[in-house]
Design a protein around this nucleic acid. Sequence first.
DNA 1: CTGAAAGCGCTTACAG
DNA 2: CTGAAAGCGCTTACAG
Lengths: 338, 338
Amino acid sequence: MAVTMHDVARLAGVSIKTVSNVVNDYPYIRPQTRARVEAAIETLGYELNVTARQLKQGRTGMIGLAVPDLRVPYFSELAYSVMRAAEDRGLTLLIEQTGPMGERELDALRGQKRRLTDGLIFSPVSMSPDDTTPLAVTYPLVLLGERVFQGPVDHVTMANVEGAKAAASHLVERGCRHVAVIGAHPGEVVGSAGLRLKGFQAGLTEAGLTPDPRLVGVAGRWVHATGAEAMRQVLDTGAPVDGVFAMNDALALGALRELHRRGFAVPDDVAVVGFDNIAQTLYSEPPLTTIDVSRKHIAHEAVRMLIERMEGLDVAPRLLTAPFELVERASTARQGTT
Amino acid sequence: MAVTMHDVARLAGVSIKTVSNVVNDYPYIRPQTRARVEAAIETLGYELNVTARQLKQGRTGMIGLAVPDLRVPYFSELAYSVMRAAEDRGLTLLIEQTGPMGERELDALRGQKRRLTDGLIFSPVSMSPDDTTPLAVTYPLVLLGERVFQGPVDHVTMANVEGAKAAASHLVERGCRHVAVIGAHPGEVVGSAGLRLKGFQAGLTEAGLTPDPRLVGVAGRWVHATGAEAMRQVLDTGAPVDGVFAMNDALALGALRELHRRGFAVPDDVAVVGFDNIAQTLYSEPPLTTIDVSRKHIAHEAVRMLIERMEGLDVAPRLLTAPFELVERASTARQGTT
DNA sequence: CTGAAAGCGCTTACAG
DNA sequence: CTGAAAGCGCTTACAG
């Protein structure tokens, strides 16, 4: 078997309590005792058995992050940020995938992995605001992302309405008069699609423009392919288009591709704004203006709230809204400034 | 405290051994005993304590995957594939980041997380083939990726030379005569940069072309920005260019951008081939021809080899080379076929 | 500042 | 098919 504290204690001539004290940086240890123990650890190549500590302490030091699909840049970048935030707080992050459509969300919520973590940060896709009962769990849980739940848990969301409104305003200020929106989910009002549509239309209305129903492109999933398809449908209506707000960057990149295919110049013929500020928007042709919702901020706050719950904080569910920022790039540059 | 096996045993009127048997699907249990135990589990809401099992069994059921940076699409797609492969074998994957330049590779190799996993799949970036001593570890380890190590461990690599050669041949067959390569690391011969350069030049030579030193673009890191920069430098030499092989897709997308900026049409003026087949190559403008090295295959084989080592297989270090495939898209379409 | 000892909740030979 | 019991390797009051 492996070297244990008992072996170290024996060699150092102390009790295992003292070894434990040294390993855990307990302060009041006589320097020479500490030195003897450390020498013994070195000699034997002792390493703490984390599992035994976990069993005794009733904690694992791990937290879970459940996202739909790591292949989607938004989620891999989110995972990056949450992992960094967790490390900053001395926690290990266990990433789990719930499937592109959230097929395995219930597994994540109540599966055996929950016994491996002290809490969960959960980014839902398929859960309906109508049925929040699966969220009534007995462990610390923080919800992430775009849906608004009245549920019994803490929640970090983003400025969907305000961000979309800023995108619309930016396009109008730039001179656009026929602004399409890509990514709508007809009938959905409390999810990110509904909120971003609402903000977008508010931005147009405030500028004195009337939203044109022909310029609303529907896209169920928010990926490149559906963005191109929705752009195609909008253009096929024959309505004039000189600006596009896509509800996320993947849709925007798909729309960009369809615009190119049809011979539209971006930004001179059509200006485009996305949402999320994923890394590849820096390198699209042209680089994409987008709404940054600060994943770093979201990650940091989510970890902070989760730790508070893990430490026993007992207050009503909290809702935090991360700030946004419009990042201007070439896809909305004014003519002649490209 | 939580409900334990003892509580279940008491309620069901059996010993905890029997409860354990039921929980672990031990076959020979009298049906009515099993039913009583299952009823008790249901009544009490019992859940197995995974940590206690881990301590007793000396295994955690987790394996680690150490990659540099989840924000890089190649690695997030790799993580996706490895997680799926691990799940297929009943293992939980713990993803770790070693930093964009591999700053924390040694931590991953010998840090405390290694006590949380039964083995490690490690994708190194900064480790030198000259010093493989950090790889002489006491736990099951499988190396992933592009460097060739003579080290003491199993290794899954990809067809770097052959894939690059196929890319070069494809460009030549298509009619290119002035083919640039992007991503070279001067002086490096056994890493992926060296191998892909070698394969590329072999492809040209075999076709009777002479590699032009002005057409070798150096790029330390392989990201969009350095790809654009390397493309710029190659074009600035004034040498004619009608084809580009980029050593990975990120470089290719950066090069694509620089070509657009300068007014080159792709593929009509310059054809471009990348390497890796990351998802966004499907949606670039134009979609990118690239070398697919089958992350799914790599992931599956790496997990398989690791499990064999975890089960005690004691043979000499093995080297597996994943197959490749040239994926043709519009960035190398012949004139008139776009 | 340090020691002796209980116990976290399982699994697993060993018996029967 | 099932039970009694040891023990995985720690942490932690409790004493001193």
